Structure formats: C-alpha cells, structure tokens
Amino acid sequence: MAAAAAAGAGPEMVRGQVFDVGPRYTNLSYIGEGAYGMVCSAYDNVNKVRVAIKKISPFEHQTYCQRTLREIKILLRFRHENIIGINDIIRAPTIEQMKDVYIVQDLMETDLYKLLKTQHLSNDHICYFLYQILRGLKYIHSANVLHRDLKPSNLLLNTTCDLKICDFGLARVADPDHDHTGFLTEYVATRWYRAPEIMLNSKGYTKSIDIWSVGCILAEMLSNRPIFPGKHYLDQLNHILGILGSPSQEDLNCIINLKARNYLLSLPHKNKVPWNRLFPNADSKALDLLDKMLTFNPHKRIEVEQALAHPYLEQYYDPSDEPIAEAPFKFDMELDDLPKEKLKELIFEETARFQPGYRS
C-alpha cells in the first residue's frame, strides 16, 4: 500500500510507478496490472468513496492506442447498470505532455475469474450472474457493438453480487458484411471463450460470437473449470467437437473457408456428449439454455433477447427493466489503419471533457 500523499506533496508512487492523480484522489492501494497499465484503488475526496484507477501508458504502440481509444469512446457513450462506466479521466493539459491516461471507475471487490478459483456457486448465484451478463449484453448488442472478449476476468463483482462487464478494448461495431482481413492475426481474445466460426472463417462476425462466450462462462460457473481449455488453435476446435459432436452437413455448409471445411470433413465422426453427463448436478433449465448458447452453427445460436426470456431466468426476466441503447454506435473511421500519432490526438480530444474549465 502506498503511503497517503500529504496535501501538495506531488504524485504518489505505487510499486515504483508514478500515479499522478492528486489532489482529488489519494490513499492509493495496488490492485493489479494488465498488459499496459496498473490498477489501484484510491480515495475520492470529492465523492467520499474509494474508486478504481487504471493507469494506461499506450502511446508507444499502435495496438494499445487503438484499444484505449475504443474503450474510452464506447464506455463514455454507454450507460447501463451492468456495464462499468467511466467516472473521470485524468491526463496532462497538453498533448505533448500526455504520456499516461488515468481512467477512474467504480471500485468492484472482485471478478468472476477470482471468485470461481475459490468458491463453488449455488444455482441461485449462477442464475443471477447469468441474468446480469445477458442484461448488459442486450444493451451492448442493441448499440450494434460486439464485445468480443467476454470471459470471467472481464466480469466485475461486488459483495452485493452486482455484476458489471468491463474491458471493451477489443470491441467492434457489428459488421457481418465487412471482410476484416487479418482478423485472426489481430484477434487476441482469450482462445477458450472463442466461437468456432472465428477459427473457421475470417469473413465478418456477428453478435452470436458473444453468446458463445457467455455459454462458455455459464459452463464454467457450473463446474469451476473452463469447458474448452484448448492449448492452441486446432486443439481448441477438437475440444469443442469432442463435446458438441461432429457438425451436420448443414452446419458445414455455413463454413465459407474450404480449407477449414475440408479439415472438419477429414475428422472421424464424434457423438455429442449429453450435458447432464458433463454437469450431473446442474439445473435442467440451465443445461437447456447452455445447449442453445453453445450451438456450433452461429445462425442457430440463441440471441440475447431470447436467452433473457428463457425459463431458467424467469424469476428475473423483465423486458421493461432491460434497457437498450438510445442509438446504434458508430465509429467515424476504422481505427485499425491509423498511425499511433493520430490515435493519440483522438484520445486527447475524447478525454477533453474531463479537463478543468472544459467548454463543449
């Protein structure tokens, strides 16, 4: 834990890192770190609560700039109880001085990944967590956004079992017609939660990839272990087919990539493993919904509104309290091709509203 900075004593240090967030945020305490930044909790002297502050230093890398800009653009436009918001952003007053960006968010005690390492969940908890994931996802999908990296560590939890989806750095506007060349190379989302079509096709992607990830998360809540822990690309596919069985001819016809289709045709026939054999203690309604989410063919996979209306979630289902976005989200430009200098300018502009004396 960093010592509390005395008023006016300059930035606090946390594990050798400068955290320049005073005077409003003090009493910093280390939480963890990701690929390009550290997260601390801090005391907000204005709202009198502890908050989470993520320090991001992305400006050396085009990919990190892209992810940072995506996350900020999306989260500043989203407003939903099951999606983490941005409360404040701290950065230098000029673009030349801006080396880091500090993002202030609600402090959540833990995440689903940490929880599943230590606790076996009751059916009631599984049901409530799944409902909140789908409630947040309904809003995301209504904005025409794909999260693309749903996994237990991106689901934040607090002691009252509130759940918030975080990390929109890989999110995209849904565009089933656009052929994202190089899709697989830039697709760094965790393999275990990846839909089979991501490994088999490169053309376009749809909201059904997020539903697949939610199915993987439900299976993990039922058993405290990942359902498809593939060691590499082909191993991942083999794990999936080992449980779902061989795809039907109709399902194979959806695979545009001939090499991928021929690979699947070359494999020995596998039978589907019954879900109640894998999860003998699970609620039968939970397994019915799991089956509809972990469907090989993305066109037959359940959609988020149908999933919310499934009998497993009937005690929570309330369409009048499951809000959607006001308007579909649009990125003005494809960020993939922009140089990091341009992305830095866009991050600077996007964060201006939090600067003292800002006038829109």
Rank of each mutant, 00 (worst) to 15 (best):
Q66P: 13
A309I: 11
N154M: 08
H125F: 05
N123V: 02
N281W: 04
I209C: 09
P247N: 02
S320A: 05
R359Q: 09
P152Q: 05
L278G: 06
K270D: 07
G230M: 02
Q355I: 06
S266F: 06
G136S: 05
K292C: 06
G230V: 13
G22R: 14
K164I: 15
P298W: 03
L107Q: 14
P93D: 03
G136E: 09
L287P: 04
M13F: 04
Y358H: 12
I89T: 10
P323D: 08
P93F: 01
L75N: 03
Q119S: 07
D100H: 12
E197S: 05
Y358C: 12
D332T: 05
Y128K: 09
F296Q: 04
Y187N: 14
I198C: 12
D336W: 12
E334C: 04
H80Y: 12
C166W: 02
N262E: 10
F228L: 14
T94Q: 08
L112D: 04
E314P: 04
M38Y: 13
N201A: 09
R15Y: 02
K300E: 07
D235F: 04
L121H: 05
A52F: 12
Q105C: 05
R277F: 08
D162S: 00
V49H: 09
D106C: 03
L237K: 02
S248G: 02
M108A: 13
S320G: 09
Y128R: 08
H120F: 02
M13I: 15
K285M: 05
L155C: 04
N87L: 09
L28R: 07
G245T: 01
R301M: 00
V51M: 14
M293E: 01
K342M: 06
Q132M: 06
N224Y: 15
G34H: 00
P274Y: 08
S223E: 11
E322T: 02
A189G: 06
E350H: 02
V104K: 01
N224L: 07
E303K: 11
T206K: 08
P356T: 13
K138S: 07
A260P: 04
I31R: 15
P226F: 02
R67T: 08
L287C: 02
L146D: 03
L308C: 06
A260V: 12
D321G: 00
S41L: 12
A195L: 08
D111T: 06
V21R: 03
A4V: 13
I86L: 08
K344H: 07
E322C: 00
R261V: 11
C127V: 09
L184I: 05
C254D: 08
K231Q: 04
P23A: 07
T63S: 14
E186R: 07
W212E: 11
Y131E: 02
P229T: 14
E81F: 02
Y205W: 04
N271H: 12
D88Q: 01
V49C: 12
V104E: 04
L115C: 00
K300G: 08
N82D: 11
L163Y: 03
S246R: 12
A325P: 02
Q66H: 15
R301N: 02
C216K: 04
Q119M: 07
V304L: 08
A260W: 02
L112F: 06
K272D: 01
E71P: 15
A35W: 01
D321W: 07
D318P: 03
A174H: 11
G204R: 14
E250H: 02
R70L: 12
D149Y: 13
I165D: 04
A309D: 12
D100I: 08
Y316V: 08
P58Q: 15
F228H: 00
I209R: 08
I347D: 05
V101W: 08
T26S: 15
G22Y: 04
L265Y: 03
L115N: 00
N47K: 15
Y312Q: 06
L258I: 07
F19S: 14
M98I: 15
P298K: 01
I256Y: 04
R225Y: 02
I89H: 11
H147Y: 11
L184N: 09
L264V: 06
Y316S: 00
I133R: 01
R135T: 01
P23I: 01
G169R: 05
S153E: 07
K151E: 09
L75R: 15
Y317D: 04
Q355M: 08
Q105H: 13
I255S: 10
A327H: 04
N45I: 14
R359T: 09
R225M: 03
D291I: 01
E71V: 14
N253K: 12
Q17N: 06
P298F: 03
E96K: 11
C161M: 05
L222S: 02
H239R: 00
N82I: 15
I72R: 02
